[in-house]
Design a protein around this nucleic acid. Structure first.
Length: 642
RNA sequence: GCCGCAGUGGCUCAGUGGUAGAGCACUCCCUUGGUAAGGGAGAGGUCGAGAGUUCAAUUCUCUCCUGCGGCACCA
């Protein structure tokens, strides 16, 4: 170790010089005993280091304590080790594999013949607390690769040995010891297990494939969450509870929007309330799309197998298609609309003057999704896409991309989503079309995206089998992301399906085809809306926009009249003249999330007024019935008609 | 599809090797009450489906179905 002086610069700009190499611990002690006690790790030129790691060159440094955001990652990483340690103590013979930090927590994948039971989580958690109390110190060693491989093999840790063998040759094989237990790990780690604290909780048990490949063995994964203190843990658990409250499956049941049943897994039974919401959304989209130069069409759902053979779907997606037999033929329910739209394009002779031709359909599709993938409205087997295909020349792609992105932004913003992320996905391993065609398609689409200033993230290898795509991911009210829109550039299918137009040069050409959706699946987007609004829909979407509730039976006739007036003004109104107290009615309609309530008693009946109560407010406002209806009619207009 | 868990009246859930219970909702009666639960009575379940063990299964075992949490998948 060199004895040259080491100068470190602290965040406040002050500098300290040490005679030789310095560790985080030494530095913290040098600054003060309080900090020495609170130190968890230190940051050297932006990189987090173990406290005991030696620094022998000048650097910018800071001491990390529990107060720092960076402490979270350290705590979670240590917690993963702690859990693995507890598991191996409780269940000897269990092999460890990997245990990374993830959003809000960590997990560790184990290989063990016996399955873990839910009850085991508590045992493991208790053992973890014991180990925290024991406060085993951490030590780091660097081993020779072959020694490390042999060591873990001898221990029966085949997975660890495999991981080490696969590490790049130039990488140090660092082993971390926590008292009697050790693991291969890149680090950094806290200086002892006690520093983790006890604000952790094991949350769920799951299966996970080794190296994420379903051909490999399935491991047992235990998830946990860990925080800097009890308060943060509580806040996290509260956040989870709040998210559960707005779960669209729960709200769908409570608000009678839709249901599923086992005779039709993954297919929605829409109830009157839910269908009203769906239809409002559909009407809105139809107006937006038709205004943007599209023509609406409708195509068959059941088509002959040979049709799908020609399109290439039979080869690649046969396993995921619903099949049927009739007239000695095999038919398949359409999994997407594009081949059908090409058939419409192919009717008659198209001229370059007809391009771009934009065909739009609320296309009803079926996909045989794996049973484990189904999830409420978010992942279904029968769904409707707000789908369209734009047939155009290659030169028109840039302009069409711009038009589409403008429309998409407008729709998202009118529906209340402003935080949108874009991804550009290029050629997948399994694909149709030559590399030359892919080169062209990727270039034209990414250039178009760049030209309109889209700030996209590159997502390699995730394109559709026929072309590259732009995906649009939106963030909802509580920060979750939903992939909805997509724009896919396709030079393959039009050719395969024989689409052609007569060019200016009098020769036949194959058009390019842009596949695009904005909402994606209507079902899924409805689910997103339910969760985004937590069931408290804006008036234009609310299944029941206003309920008229009478206070006494003497006002019932007037209440009926008010409902009739609301309905003739085009509003969705319902009547509540039950023989119940107004308190109960207010409570029930509030719980039902009806946005507006007209409360009418004797006074209102005599004066032709209504007492208005809005969802989420205790205020009351009395207005003349006509005026109230007039105001509400304005307010209930969809965003594009405001 | 894979791993783990679950399936009991419309809903939320309790419970037991001797064929079931609560709250809410529902029906009826009383109550006409001014902004988040007025009172009383009543009705309602082949305990997901099939098979097995047992004198006896909603309860134990197996198979299947569906759902839930992940994984894998998502044209």
């Amino acid at each position: 170790m060199s004895n040259n002086p080491v100068k470190v610069t602290l965040p406040d700009g002050s500098a300290r010089t040490f005679d030789g190499a310095v560790t985080g611990t030494l530095l913290a002690q040098d600054i003060g005993p309080g900090l020495a006690k609170a130190a968890l790790a230190w940051q050297v030129d932006g990189e987090i280091w173990d406290l005991e790691r030696q620094l022998s060159v000048d650097a910018e440094v800071s001491i990390i304590t529990r107060k720092d955001e960076a402490a979270l990652e350290l705590i979670r990483h240590d917690c993963a080790h702690l859990m693995a340690m507890a598991v191996q103590e409780l269940f000897p013979g269990t092999q460890v594999t990997i245990g990374p930090v993830i959003e809000d927590g960590f997990f560790y994948d184990f290989a063990r013949n016996e399955p873990f039971k839910t009850e085991d989580l508590e045992k493991i958690e208790n053992k973890m607390r014991e180990l925290v109390d024991a406060d085993h110190p951490t030590a780091r060693e660097v081993w020779a690769r072959d020694d490390a491989v042999k060591h873990f093999k001898d221990l029966g840790e085949a997975y660890k040995a495999e991981i080490i063998s696969d590490l790049p040759a130039d990488q140090d094989i660092s082993i971390y010891f926590h008292g009697p237990w050790h693991d291969l790990c890149r680090g950094p780690h806290l200086s002892s297990l006690g520093k983790i604290g006890k604000a952790f909780k094991l949350t769920k048990l799951a299966g996970a494939y080794w190296r994420g490949d379903s051909n490999n063995a399935q491991l047992q994964r235990i998830y946990g969450t860990a925080w800097r203190d009890e308060k943060e843990l509580k806040a996290y658990l509260f956040r989870i509870e709040e998210a559960e409250k707005r779960d669209h499956r729960k709200l769908g049941k409570e608000m009678s929007l839709f249901h599923f049943q086992e005779e039709a897994p993954g297919m929605v039974f829409w109830h009157p309330n839910g269908w009203t919401l769906y239809r409002e959304l559909e009407s809105y989209m139809r107006r937006k799309i038709l205004k943007n130069g599209y023509d609406e069409v409708r195509t068959p759902q059941l088509l002959d197998r040979k049709f799908w053979e020609q399109s290439g779907h039979w080869d690649k997606y046969r396993e995921n298609m619903f099949l049927s037999e009739a007239d000695d033929k095999t038919l398949a329910l359409k999994p997407m609309n594009c081949p059908c739209h090409v058939q419409i394009f192919n009717q008659g002779i198209k001229s370059y003057r007809d391009l771009p031709l934009r065909l739009m359909e609320f296309g009803s599709c079926h996909r045989y999704e794996p049973s484990g993938a189904l999830h409420g409205l978010m992942r279904v087997r029968g769904f409707v896409q707000d789908d369209a295909h734009i047939f155009c020349t290659e030169d028109q792609i840039a302009e069409e991309t711009k038009r589409f992105c403008d429309l998409l932004q407008e729709v998202y913003s009118e529906l209340g989503f402003t935080d949108i992320r874009v991804m550009f996905s290029d050629r997948p391993a399994v694909r149709a079309g030559s590399d030359e065609v892919w080169d062209r398609a990727e270039k034209v689409l990414s250039d178009a995206a760049k030209n309109i200033g889209l700030d996209y993230v590159h997502n390699p290898g995730d394109g559709a089998f026929y072309g590259p795509k732009l995906d649009f991911v939106l963030r909802d009210a509580i920060g979750r992301e939903w992939q909805c829109g997509t724009l896919q550039c396709d030079f393959v299918l039009p050719e395969r399906l024989g689409a052609a137009y007569m060019g200016e040069d009098g020769k036949k050409h194959t058009p390019a085809m842009l596949h695009r959706v904005i909402l994606g699946s209507m079902e899924r987007f409805t689910g997103v809306l339910i969760e985004h609004h937590a069931g408290k829909f804006p008036i234009w979407l609310a299944p029941v926009q206003v309920v008229v509730a009478s206070i006494t039976s003497e006002a019932n006739a007037y209440a009926e009249k008010a409902v009739e007036a609301l309905e003739s003004a085009g509003l969705r109104a319902s009547l509540d003249v039950r023989n119940e107290k107004i308190n109960l009615k207010v409570r029930e309609h509030s719980l039902a999330k009806t946005p507006v309530m007209f409360v009418v008693g004797k006074k209102e009946a005599e004066n032709t007024t209504v007492s208005i109560r809005r969802l989420g407010s205790k205020d009351q406002e009395t207005l003349a019935l006509d005026e109230a209806i007039h105001d509400l009619t304005q307010e209930a207009r969809p965003p594009d008609l405001q």
